[in-house]
Amino acid sequence: MTDVKIDQVAEALEALAHPSRLQILVTLTERYSLPLTSLQQQLQISFPVLSSHLTHLQEQHLLVSQQQGNELHYSLADASLRQVINIIRTKYM
């Protein structure tokens, strides 16, 4: 694995290490896709803070968003991430 790839993996793992971001990913593992308003209500995080975390997760290619009607829906970027989150949940939660 190249140094660049190692750095990318480390950055993605760092994104997972933040409690709020991990909770976002756990929530989306359970629900598959949620609009921003539902995420905010479930997580009890202010919109600006939630938006910042969502942006960070998207920059790390861990989340994707899709416009559905008037709402922006978020979901995990791929199934392999769901497996990783489920392993974390099984081991630590």
Rank of each mutant, 00 (worst) to 15 (best):
T27A: 13
N86D: 14
N86I: 03
H73C: 10
P19C: 05
L36E: 14
S33G: 05
S33I: 04
L62C: 04
Y74H: 15
L13W: 00
E71Y: 06
L36N: 13
A17R: 03
Y74R: 06
R21C: 02
S46T: 14
L34Q: 00
R31I: 02
L63Q: 08
L72C: 07
Q23D: 14
I6V: 04
S52V: 06
A10C: 06
R82A: 14
S75C: 09
L25S: 05
S80P: 03
T29Q: 04
V4R: 13
Q40G: 03
L62R: 03
P48S: 06
Q23K: 11
A77V: 06
L76Q: 06
Q42H: 10
R21N: 02
D7C: 12
L43C: 12
I45N: 02
L72F: 02
L54Q: 06
T2M: 09
S65V: 03
V84D: 08
K91L: 13
E30H: 13
T27S: 07
E59K: 11
D78E: 04
H53C: 09
S75M: 05
V4W: 08
P19H: 06
S33R: 11
Q23V: 01
Q23M: 12
A10W: 01
V9M: 02
T37A: 14
R82K: 14
L28C: 10
L34M: 06
S46Y: 04
Q60R: 12
H18N: 11
V9T: 04
K91M: 10
L16T: 02
V84I: 15
A15L: 01
R89Y: 14
Q8P: 03
E71K: 15
P48C: 07
V49P: 03
V64R: 05
A77Y: 03
I45C: 06
P35C: 05
Q41W: 07
Q66W: 04
L50C: 06
P35K: 10
L72S: 11
L16Y: 00
E30C: 09
E59W: 02
Q66D: 04
T2C: 14
L63W: 02
G69A: 02
E59P: 02
Q66L: 06
N86S: 15
L54H: 07
V84A: 15
D3F: 06
L13R: 00
F47V: 11
Q60M: 12
L28N: 07
N70H: 12
L62S: 00
Q40N: 09
P35W: 07
Q41A: 14
S75V: 02
S52N: 13
Y74V: 02
S75H: 00
Q42G: 08
R89P: 05
L25F: 01
Q68L: 12
K91R: 13
D3S: 11
A79Q: 09
Q83D: 15
L54D: 03
N70Y: 08
L50V: 10
Q23I: 08
L76K: 03
H56E: 07
L34I: 00
L76Y: 04
D7W: 14
L43N: 10
M93A: 11
S51W: 13
T90C: 12
V26E: 10
Q58E: 15
I24H: 08
S46C: 07
L34V: 04
V84K: 03
V84F: 12
D78R: 06
L63N: 01
V4N: 10
R31M: 09
L63G: 01
A12D: 01
L22W: 09
L50P: 01
K5S: 07
I24C: 09
Q60P: 11
G69Q: 05
L62K: 00
Q67D: 08
Q8M: 11
S52F: 10
P35V: 05
S80G: 10
T29K: 09
